[in-house]
């Protein structure tokens, strides 16, 4: 890439070429999810941990039969948890389920309408999980002080929301994301809020290290095409960030030389 070679994204000691992380919720079926994953070129995919349906047919494939933990980094989340205790239990279950896997996406929600993070419970859960040697990627509000505190606790990535989960409203407070980035020594990944490709590019142009999204792809009219668009948007935003954008000017600035005109 020109003169400035990008470095891989490193999370929990593992290098990733892709800076896009996708979810596995809301797809029509596993096949559509898998095709979107391939089109996105993402190397990490989130999953939820839920009770098995005791009535389910034995031969029915499960998500991890289609999306292989050998090929992709599975990122179990704590979606649906409203207390630190629920989130910690969920992570322990995920670890057992995935043979000692350490990487988790911590999210502790505050209420059902906004799905905003409950920051105090998130901080408490992060403390416990880090003490138990989990690699914690943490969904949080776009508060720079909370983001810094989560990093101090030892989270391996801080993931502020761009807008509420599933809202598709884009990056509503780019200035807060910038403040978080300025303070951060760990990867900052925008988690939630992306609605379309330009939103992902904006996050990356701000200097975010990655973007995590689910609904923007899964609820697109054509999820596989949107997954491909998101791959390009994240790459384009990253390259634009590395390239360094031109300054903004209020007035025009001619692109053709002013000198040498013959009239």
């Amino acid at each position: 890439m020109g003169t400035r070679q990008d470095r891989p994204l490193i999370i929990g000691g593992v290098e990733y070429d892709s800076r896009l992380i996708i979810g596995s919720g809301k797809y029509k079926d596993f096949e559509e999810n898998h095709a979107a994953l391939e089109a996105s070129a993402a190397e990490m995919i989130t999953v939820a941990i839920r009770r098995v349906n005791l009535g389910q047919k034995k031969e029915e494939p499960s998500l991890l039969d289609i999306i292989s933990p050998e090929k992709y980094t599975i990122l179990p989340n704590t979606a649906g948890c409203y207390t630190a205790e629920e989130a910690v239990r969920t992570c322990r279950m995920a670890q057992e389920l995935l043979d000692g896997h350490k990487l988790v996406k911590l999210e502790v929600l505050g209420d059902q309408k906004t799905l905003y993070p409950n920051v105090t419970e998130t901080l408490a859960a992060a403390e416990t999980l880090v003490a138990e040697d989990f690699d914690v990627m943490v969904y949080t509000s776009d508060d720079p002080l909370v983001a810094r505190r989560l990093e101090e606790i030892g989270c391996v990535a801080v993931m502020p929301l761009g807008a509420p989960i599933g809202s598709g409203l884009g990056i509503r407070n780019p200035y807060n994301i910038r403040m978080i980035l300025e303070n951060a020594q760990v990867p900052v990944i925008v988690d939630a809020g992306v609605g379309t490709a330009s939103d992902a590019s904006i996050a990356m142009e701000l200097g975010c290290h990655g973007v995590l999204m689910n609904t923007a792809i899964a609820e697109a009219q054509n999820p596989i095409l949107m997954a491909s668009a998101m791959r390009k948007a994240v790459e384009a935003g990253r390259e634009a960030y590395l390239a360094g954008r031109m300054p903004r000017r209020l007035y025009a600035n001619a692109s053709s030389p002013v000198d040498g005109t013959f009239f």
């Binding site: 979810g23 596995s24 919720g25 809301k26 797809y27 596993f30 999810n33 989130t46 999953v47 939820a48 941990i49 839920r50 009770r51 098995v52 005791l54 499960s62 998500l63 991890l64 599975i74 179990p76 989340n77 979606a79 279950m93 995920a94 389920l97 995935l98 989960i165 599933g166 999204m213 689910n214 609904t215 899964a218």
Partner: peptide, 10 residues
């Protein structure tokens, strides 16, 4: 007893 599995989620 709780028995869980991984399912689709974001």
């Amino acid at each position: 007893i709780e028995i869980v599995q991984a399912i689709g989620g974001g």
